[in-house]
Design a protein around this nucleic acid. Structure first.
Length: 538
RNA sequence: GGGCCCGUAGCUCAGCAAGGCUAGAGCGGCGGACUCUUAAUCCGUAGGUCGCGGGUUCAAUUCCCGUCGGGCCCGCCA
């Protein structure tokens, strides 16, 4: 009985993880006695490499929490903090080798190799921001470079530097790293060579607000980066350096008043250290956390040569809608996910299914499950679900129709075929057009079009020749259809075999759509040209 | 050395947060319908000790402990 009660009464908000998390945050903040007018969530975005799909997930999930907080009646915003003052540690795949000379430089001080942004760092972070914008994720963007320059963290940096010894101890206690026992958790940018990771900060002059450093060099990703030997001083108030990650998070949390931040398990240690620094040195209760697992590229699956094997948000959005990508991120929070582009159609279809549940076209008995599924759908729409259901056509059907469509006429052909089949009422609106475009991209990139060589017997050659002649006169789809059939009979070829030949020649597949209409759609001239060429080869 | 995830049908996975209905889907298999062929579509059908062992509970795929197998992250970078 108690279980039955839970089914109907135990649902928070829209029944999703995000609603539950939001409630947890609110309860925690109440206990802490902090204000609830603006509850900030934060995500960090890397600017030194191509945005991985995981960064998008970080954003989508944090934004969902932000929406859940608003939904429960509180002010909230998502801060997207770009780590664009970090130094470049390795040349990302696909980048010119000349990038190597900038190893160690803050990424906003490196020219954009593609020349479309003012710096390497801006180029990188804009890639993710574009994907966020396309997905209607709202955020308050803060650049690390800007924040340091504007002195946003000055008070907190001062506190950290004044308590550097304690910071070093905490780091040592948590992960055993001894580096910060001796050096300050701050990386000045070398005034001589311009690099940030080659410097070691050894003294803090509190009265002058300055940090003394030497450009000694450092090991990065197993490679020694030699310093230039310069010794100098940096003024942290002018952004002449940045904090180490092991203290910077804490500073951000306090300065920006962050109450929730999710993180990937790869930075778990850093988060734990920062929690302590935040609490023990900055005297600010750190934000509530949620740890998520990594996204892995499915290995062993050949994808496209052009797309490569890196699944970035940009790649996804070529073949699937932003909502399908959001669904991927929101539906499950835990568990390592192996992903590849071949999963995109599945999520496109799943979103349609969720829509059916939402509009009651598909019944779900269990109330808890119903709440969860409709809730998930609502979050995929950022809590502004559509008033009307949309056209649902399975992705693989569209991909198939596009594949067999005459080149350049994919959309028209597909719509026509759909109308001829069971979907007479189909209308070519933006939604359908977009879906067809995804299928076209999919088809272009993942369907290998190979010329299948075919051997023809004498009768088969004659039959083909006969067909070519007939195609000069026949115009009507149905007539062409029966002509093909008649020619096959006339030349003593089983119709099945004759059709197979035609499909192989025209489509590189032993099967296909109804031939007559297809030939008309493709253009009789094109067909005769192709057939004639094949006849010459035989 | 420290931490985490996964194990459910032949394959790929969903479900587990907040225990409760006959454990689902796609693909594949098998059978059929339709058809001047073929694709698509539709119908039916087989297939599961929910890795294993214990515990909590009226009730465990779901929670807890242990165990085996596969994988991931961190280890003096950020």
């Amino acid at each position: 009985m108690c279980g039955l009660r839970l089914l109907t009464e135990g649902i928070i908000g829209h029944g999703t993880w995000y609603d539950k998390t939001a409630r947890g945050i609110i309860e925690r903040e109440r206990k802490l006695g902090r204000g609830l007018d603006l509850i900030r969530t934060e995500m960090g975005l890397g600017a030194s490499g191509l945005p991985h799909i995981g960064s998008f997930g970080d954003a989508a999930r944090s934004f969902a929490v932000t929406l859940a907080l608003k939904d429960q009646g509180f002010g909230s915003e998502l801060v997207a903090f770009s780590d664009d003052k970090d130094g470049l540690r390795k040349v990302p795949a696909g980048f010119p080798e000349t990038t190597r000379e900038y190893l160690g430089y803050p990424v906003t001080n490196i020219p954009d190799p593609f020349k479309c942004h003012t710096s390497f760092g801006e180029h990188m972070s804009s890639l993710l921001l574009e994907a966020l914008d396309k997905s209607n994720i709202q955020y308050n963007f803060i650049s690390a470079t800007r924040a340091y320059k504007d002195g946003l963290f000055n008070d907190e940096i001062k506190t950290i530097l004044s308590n550097a010894k304690r910071v070093g101890e905490i780091v040592k206690e948590e992960v055993g790293q001894q580096r910060y026992i001796k050096t300050l958790p701050y990386f000045p940018i070398c005034k001589s060579c311009g690099r940030i990771y080659t410097t070691t900060a050894h003294k803090y002059l509190a009265d002058e607000e300055k940090i003394l450093y030497t450009c000694k060099g450092m090991e990065i990703k197993g490679q020694w980066l030699e310093g230039c030997g310069y010794t100098g001083e940096a003024d942290y108030r002018k952004g002449e350096g940045k904090l180490s990650w092991k203290s910077e998070f804490a500073v951000r949390w306090k300065a920006l008043d962050i109450r929730f931040e999710a993180y990937g398990k790869d930075i778990e240690d850093s988060v734990r250290i920062n929690d302590r620094i935040c609490r023990e040195i900055l005297h600010y209760e750190p934000p509530q956390h949620a740890r998520y697992e990594m996204f892995l590229d499915k290995s062993g699956k050949k994808i496209s040569k052009s797309a490569g094997n890196v699944l970035t948000p940009q790649v996804w959005l070529q073949y699937g809608s932003s909502r399908s990508l959001i669904l991927l991120m929101l539906k499950r929070f835990t568990g390592t996910r192996e992903l590849s582009v071949v999963d995109i159609p599945q999520y496109m279809n799943e979103l349609d299914e969720l829509e059916d549940v939402y509009f009651g076209k598909k019944t779900v008995e269990n109330k808890k499950e119903l709440a969860k599924l409709t809730g998930l759908f609502e979050y995929c729409w950022w809590l502004k679900p559509p008033a009307e259901p949309s056209v649902h056509i399975p992705y693989n059907l569209l991909a198939y129709l596009v594949k067999v469509a005459p080149r350049g006429k994919e959309t028209e052909f597909t719509v026509q075929k759909l109308r001829e089949s069971t979907r007479k009422d189909v209308e070519l609106n933006d939604n359908l057009r977009q879906r067809i475009d995804y299928a076209i991209n999919w088809n272009n990139d993942f369907t290998e079009i190979k010329e299948t060589p075919i051997k023809l017997s004498t009768e088969e050659r004659d039959a083909l020749r006969n067909l070519v002649e007939n195609l000069q006169q026949e115009v009507d789809e149905e007539q062409i259809q029966s002509t093909i059939f008649n020619i096959a009979k006339k030349h003593n070829i089983p119709p099945r075999r004759f059709f197979q030949i035609l499909y192989t020649v025209l489509l590189s597949s032993p099967e296909g759509p109804k031939m007559g209409p297809y030939i008309v759609a493709m253009g009789r001239q094109n067909v005769t040209k192709t057939l004639t060429r094949v006849l010459k080869l035989n």
